[in-house]
Nucleic acid binder design. Structure first.
Lengths: 163, 163
DNA sequence: GCTGAAAGTATAAATTC
DNA sequence: GAATTTATACTTTCAGC
């Protein structure tokens, strides 16, 4: 696989993005050292990468388990609705539910796939009731038994990484 | 839903975690102001939350589309393997593949669910060949047509949020 | 946990390549 | 046009209370 180097992004930009997506609290001087540039030059590039939207946001990833979220579920849902106005309303409702971390419109037999974090069985029951109330006709819940990998790192540089 | 307040985490800790998981580059003085504490006290708490593992890491979330990743896939895979040593080897291989952002061992008819980011159709073909070589017997690929929501924010405080 | 000072870090300005 | 060095403002972090 080759790196994504375009007219707008050179190798140094890619390197900066990669370092930041792995460890965003790295300080500017250290970042500059790793890309062989002066701190101000590096800083200017970061600001450009932010303003141009390559960096969407910087976040802290919290430990689900330590915070009491015992259940991670992937839930497939289907609706019988084909009216776009109603679908938008359902999507809006799904997006505002804080248990729903991800929601994707998918190819295949189901309409949407949800990634949902839940504390316990009781809350899962409550959540599925909420889905039913939205007018969702079919729900297929898959529980994660074990997390093998969970990363936000896009493969923008060649080397395979393990985290 | 009620907040997760335990002997180790009080309301202020939860508030700090929540602010950081939404915007980790917020500065300490501003964070302190929002939780009604002095900057040093706030700082001490953050360090504690990090060392105790409530904060796993801080990362920059990059824009997939702008970086050329046109395809987001959820891929279900099954193996015919029941020997734990071989399964561990397969899991290790999956975990080191940089296209695989997530890998979960799931309940249901399939063994694993993968979240995979891919640049184009050609790369998807190449990726599926790699899976075949690992000894995976059944592969069901679902493409994301549209992202309705994509968040890393755990619902540790009551209010529903939209991002 | 607070206040205030010292150390460290980011940003701006001036200059050079 | 983009990077560097120098200078300044800000932010974190460490005392003492």
């Amino acid at each position: 696989m080759e790196s994504y180097v375009s007219k707008v992004l050179d190798e140094i930009d890619i390197k900066i993005l990669d370092l930041l997506q792995k460890e965003s609290q790295i300080n500017n001087a250290e970042l500059a050292r790793r890309v062989n540039l002066s701190p101000p030059a590096t800083h200017t590039r970061i600001k450009r990468l932010e303003s141009e939207g390559f960096i969407e946001r910087q976040v802290a990833i919290l430990n689900q388990e330590k915070l009491g979220f015992d259940l991670l579920c992937y839930i497939f849902i289907s609706t019988n609705i084909h009216q776009s106005e109603l679908l938008e309303k359902i999507e809006g409702s799904l997006a505002t539910m804080s248990e729903v971390l991800e929601c994707h419109c998918l190819t295949g037999e189901h309409d949407y796939l949800l990634k949902v974090v839940i504390r316990d069985r009781k809350e899962l029951d409550y959540f599925i009731r909420k889905l039913n109330k939205l007018g969702i006709s079919r729900i297929q819940t898959n529980l994660s038994l074990r997390e093998v990998k969970n990363s936000t790192i896009l493969p923008i540089v060649d080397n395979e990484q393990s985290c």
